[in-house]
């Protein structure tokens, strides 16, 4: 009864090569969608500009004496906060996308199961890149001249984009299991707000009460922010750099499989 009459090479598994190819095609789809609706880039364009201006001029004098001395502290902090916040949009959009009929077709195609998710997340790195470039540009306009020079700024930018991509798997997971797009936004903001503010992004940790210092030092975002500061200000690739990358890898190792599984379960 096996369909020997069909002249096709049939395989019941997809290799790594196919998974990468399929994901890149899906990323291409994501980029086409962004190109068709550029207004969805509003948030990544405006947020870095407004936040950088606002926080620098509000806190600069109080924390570092003047704005210029505050820039090496605040720019890496704002950078991480902005780019990580941008990654929430990935989960929200995935939720909206999955409600559309086209995801049925993706499921019925003989492609790697991870591709529709990985592709969407990959396409969103364009958003992180825009936010990163704008934050550094704003800093430059305000007089920030990182000691590390352009080379270390690029390394720091790539580190932040890679970590944001990893963290976006968490929001993708929320996106897959949540019922509505707005609930994804809600849950994600709730999780991120304390993480970005209870960190070393805006103020020196030693000004905080002991119990808070304990949390802030544990906070993975503090490690990422420190890694970025080390790179751009001191040209150091230190332990925080390694911790950030390991953390990113752990997040992907946990959340990518459970997200794909939850995605497959959805009807």
């Amino acid at each position: 009864m096996k369909s020997t009459s069909l002249n096709r090479q049939l395989k019941n598994n997809t290799g790594l090569g196919q998974a990468v190819r399929n994901s890149l095609t899906m990323a291409y789809r994501g980029l086409l969608k962004i190109r068709r609706t550029p207004e969805q880039l509003f948030d990544v364009t405006l947020q870095p500009i407004i936040f950088t201006l606002m926080f620098t001029y509000i806190f600069g004098g109080a924390i570092s004496g003047n704005v210029k001395n505050y820039l090496p502290v605040i720019i890496p902090g704002i950078l991480v906060q902005t780019v990580i916040t941008t990654s929430i949009v990935t989960g929200v959009q995935l939720r909206e996308d999955m409600d559309k009929g086209v995801f049925d077709r993706f499921k019925s195609l003989p492609i790697a199961r991870i591709a529709p998710l990985a592709g969407a997340l990959l396409a969103d790195t364009i958003r992180y890149t825009i936010a990163t470039v704008l934050t550094f540009t704003m800093g430059y306009i305000m007089g920030y001249r990182p000691d590390g020079g352009l080379g270390y700024v690029v390394i720091a930018a790539i580190l932040v984009i890679v970590c944001s991509w990893s963290i976006s798997w968490i929001f993708a997971f929320f996106g897959v299991i949540a019922r509505t797009a707005s609930s994804v936004q809600g849950i994600s903001m709730l999780a991120l707000f304390p993480l970005t503010f209870l960190s070393n992004a805006f103020v020196p940790v030693n000004t905080m009460p002991d119990w808070l210092q304990w949390f802030v030092k544990m906070n993975p975002l503090s490690h990422l922010i420190t890694a970025v500061r080390d790179l751009v200000n001191n040209t150091i690739i230190g332990s925080d750099f390694v911790i950030s990358l390991i953390g990113a890898a752990v997040i992907v190792a946990i959340f990518a499989p459970i997200t794909v599984r939850a995605y497959m379960r959805r009807t």
């Binding site: 369909s3 069909l6 096709r8 049939l10 395989k11 019941n12 598994n13 997809t14 789809r29 086409l32 969608k33 068709r36 609706t37 559309k100 009929g101 086209v102 995801f103 049925d104 077709r105 019925s108 195609l109 003989p110």
Partner: peptide
């Protein structure tokens, strides 16, 4: 169930709601 990826190579599905990308 056991050979789902093989089955997917043998079928085409046109859903009740258009399974194409609206924005493209």
């Amino acid at each position: 169930m056991k050979e789902s990826q093989v089955v997917r190579q043998l079928i085409g599905v046109t859903g009740q709601y258009a399974s194409v990308d609206e924005s493209l």
